[in-house]
Amino acid sequence: MVPVDRAVAAEVEAIVAREAFLLDTRRWADWLALYADDAIFWVPAWASDDGFTTDPDNNVSLMYMDKAGLEARVFRIESADSWATEPLPFTAHLVTSVLVTATRGAELEASAAWLVRSFARTRGATLRGGRYDYVFRRAPDGLRIARKTVYVHDDRIVGALDVYNI
């Protein structure tokens, strides 16, 4: 672990909480604005019973997207034309144990544990969990997400798995 300034730790905790808040309250444009233009959003797949895929160029991931990919996800949500999200579920992100794990120049790494409870009348409640690994980059007006890796522990996925419910 690295010694971290309390103010920096608080700043990281705040942006992690803010991302959860923006997703749960469906403020999609504000959520997208948290991401740097060259950001990568990666959800590895299970590689075996013991671990996740590590190489998105040679392994299949559940998602591996640049910012255009994230924008397409938001476009799809807002167009309300996907049968799987009719209606869009309510979500509650519980993100905790946020820890800054590395600092280098303008970049910071952090890790957190997550649970998301989703509920839609059509499908009932689903609960999934895992870990986030973030890379943040300092911009003039605060931190931006340069990379987010979402480990989803659950197998045998029930219902849609999308940017808002992981």
Partner: peptide, 20 residues
């Protein structure tokens, strides 16, 4: 791989709608 992820999993932009 990217085209596969676009279509063939419940995290994709197509299969969730097939399941529905």
């Amino acid at each position: 791989i990217r085209k596969y992820e676009d279509f063939f999993f419940p995290a994709s932009l197509a299969v969730p709608d097939d399941v529905a």
